[in-house]
């Protein structure tokens, strides 16, 4: 069934099924962390998650119908935002902690060992607290994640060729489906019409904070790489270079 013919319920069901499995860092933690060991753990985990993220994106109804260039651009623009929203979701029931994976959980204070990361940890914890206040639901979370992916590149390019225009139109229709799905998910919560409108506004406004933290995180990772604190390789290197060149 094409996504345009799916009910919001079916669409959400498909993106719930696309959710990546829980991922483990599977490293022996030598605490206390050094600046280098913490950065290596964070980047190793990110690299593993990125591979699963590509698989997740391909399972979002309609994503693989976009041009390959659009698929690449969308992923390279939003990958850190997606990782951060996933982190917030895992951490939402653990105030003051960041649950990077079931075997890699950090307190705010543990960020002290990496220069400049406390500021980012605090932003991540603040956004997570906001999701906690809003009692974010799983259905809403999966819609927001798909929205981040599909919205990431919208204001960066303007289509020129017929193929680009076709892909852009498909992308806009796909965003419509995701917005419909989020509206439907909110409508199931037993709120008044006004409360539903406000909730939609509050949830989508949080996306601008996530973009902001992601930009900060990208700058931080680039600095750590430049100073040789951390060795960045494979897919993560490709994504990082894409954002810094």
């Amino acid at each position: 069934v094409h996504h345009s013919a799916m009910s919001p319920e079916e669409f959400i069901s498909r993106i719930m099924e696309a959710e990546p499995p829980e991922i483990y860092l599977m490293e022996d933690m030598n605490k206390p962390f050094t600046e280098s060991s913490m950065m290596m753990s964070l980047t190793n985990l990110a690299d593993k998650e990125l591979v699963l993220m590509i698989s997740w994106a391909k399972k979002i109804p309609g994503f693989v119908e976009l041009s390959l260039a659009d698929q690449i651009h969308l992923l390279k623009c939003c990958w850190l935002e997606i990782l951060m929203l996933g982190l917030m979701w895992r951490s939402v029931d653990h105030p003051g902690k960041l649950i990077f994976s079931p075997d890699f959980k950090l307190n705010r204070e543990e960020g002290q060992c990496v220069e400049g990361i406390m500021e980012i940890f605090d932003m991540l914890l603040a956004a997570t607290s906001r999701f906690r206040e809003l009692k974010l639901q799983r259905e809403e979370y999966v819609c927001l994640k798909a929205m981040i992916l599909l919205n990431s590149y919208l204001c960066t390019n303007s289509p020129e060729t017929a193929e680009e225009l076709e892909s852009r139109n498909k992308l806009l229709r796909l965003l419509d489906s995701v917005i419909d799905a989020l509206v439907w998910a909110i409508s199931k919560l037993g709120l008044t019409t006004q409360q539903q409108t406000l909730r939609l506004g509050h949830l989508t406004m949080l996306l601008s904070h996530i973009r902001h933290v992601s930009n900060k995180g990208m700058d931080h990772l680039s600095t750590m790489k430049r100073k040789n604190v951390v060795l960045v390789y494979d897919l993560l290197l490709e994504m990082l270079d894409a954002n810094t060149t």
Binding site: P21, S55, K58, I72, L75, L235, E238
Partner: peptide
Amino acid sequence: TSLKEKHKILHQLLQNSTSPVDLA
């Protein structure tokens, strides 16, 4: 540099029908 060359791994993962979990 073409998009394909600049994003070799990403391009491969997007085009590959093999589960990325296997590649990881």
